[in-house]
Design a protein around this nucleic acid. Structure first.
Lengths: 139, 139
DNA sequence: TTCATTGCAAAAGCTTTGCATGTGT
DNA sequence: ACACATGCAAAGCTTTTGCAATGAA
C-alpha cells in the first residue's frame, strides 16, 4: 500500500487530500501490531500533530475501506485494528493471563477454510481466528 | 449444564440463589444462537419478568465464568454472547451483505488448531473463527 | 467560490456503579 | 440480623454528530 494509492482512492471518491488525513495515514502505515483509535490519536498528539480524535475516528473507516487495516477481535471494550498485508496474513493466539498476542500463519489452515467455504457455496473475503488460552511463559 | 450446577456454583462462591438470577439463567438456557445483553433483557421483560438491565449485565459475567455462554465476535458495536456446548462447538461464516450467520463445524480444523498450539507450547482453552464473505443467497 | 474537512463540544449508545432498598440464609 | 442482590439513575467510556470555521480544488 503506497501513499499514492491512498490519495488516488480519496480523489476517486470525490474527497480531498488533506494534511490531517495524510498524517493519520502515515502514522497507521508506521504502526506495528494492534492499535485502537485512541492509541492512534495519542501517538499523533505526541508527535506534535494537531489532529482531533474526531478526525481519527472519521479517517479509520476510509482506511478499512481501502484495505489498509481491518478490525480484529476486541480484546477489551473497544475496537482494535491491525494493518492488513496480503503477504503477512496471520491469526492470533491470545494469552488469557498476560494478554500477550502470538501471531501465527498456517497455509494448511487457510486451505482448509477455502474448502469449507466451497462446500457451503460461500465466497470468503476475509477471516479472523483467535485462539484463547495460556502461553508458554504463563504456565 | 443443569440448573443445579449453576446453583452449586453460585453457592460455592458465597453468593445467593435468587429469583432474578434464576430467571436470567433459565432464559439464557432457552436461547438459541447469538444474543446481546439488551435482547436478553427485552425477552425477559416481554415474558413479564421484572429484572433490570443492571441485573442482566451483572449476571452475564457469572454465566461466562461458569462456562454457559461465551462472548463471540461483535457484529456491530456491542457484545454478543452465545451458549457454549461442548458437543456443538462450531465456527461462523458471516455474510457481509445480509448478515446471515452460517454455523459450521470441522473436526479437521479443530485438530489442526491443536497441532498449531502444541507447536507454540500454547494451552488452548477456546477459540473463535469468523469467516466473512458473501453467502450463496446473496450472490 | 464551492463543498469537503476539521475541531469542538454535545450527544448517543452500551456498560458499569453508588446508594438506598429489598431479600436470601 | 447480616450480607449479598436489586433497581434506579447517574456516571463512564468509546464513538458519532451538528455546527461554525477552515481549507482544498
Amino acid at each position: 500500500m503506497e501513499k499514492e494509492n491512498f490519495q488516488d482512492f480519496i480523489l476517486s471518491k470525490g474527497l480531498r487530500t488533506t494534511k490531517k488525513r495524510n498524517e493519520i495515514f502515515d502514522e497507521v502505515l508506521k504502526t506495528e501490531g494492534h492499535f485502537d483509535p485512541d492509541e492512534l490519536y495519542m501517538r499523533l498528539k505526541q508527535k506534535g500533530s494537531k489532529v482531533s480524535r474526531a478526525s481519527v475516528y472519521r479517517t479509520i473507516p476510509l482506511l478499512v475501506e481501502i484495505g489498509l487495516i481491518e478490525e480484529v477481535e476486541r480484546v477489551d471494550k473497544h475496537a482494535h485494528y491491525e494493518r492488513v498485508s496480503v503477504e503477512s496474513h496471520h491469526d492470533h493466539m491470545i494469552c488469557m493471563k498476560c494478554g500477550r498476542v502470538i501471531e501465527f500463519y498456517s497455509p494448511t489452515l487457510e486451505m482448509l477454510q477455502d474448502e469449507l467455504c466451497l462446500r457451503e457455496n460461500f465466497t470468503k473475503v476475509r477471516h479472523s481466528l483467535e485462539i484463547y488460552g495460556v502461553c508458554n511463559k504463563c504456565k
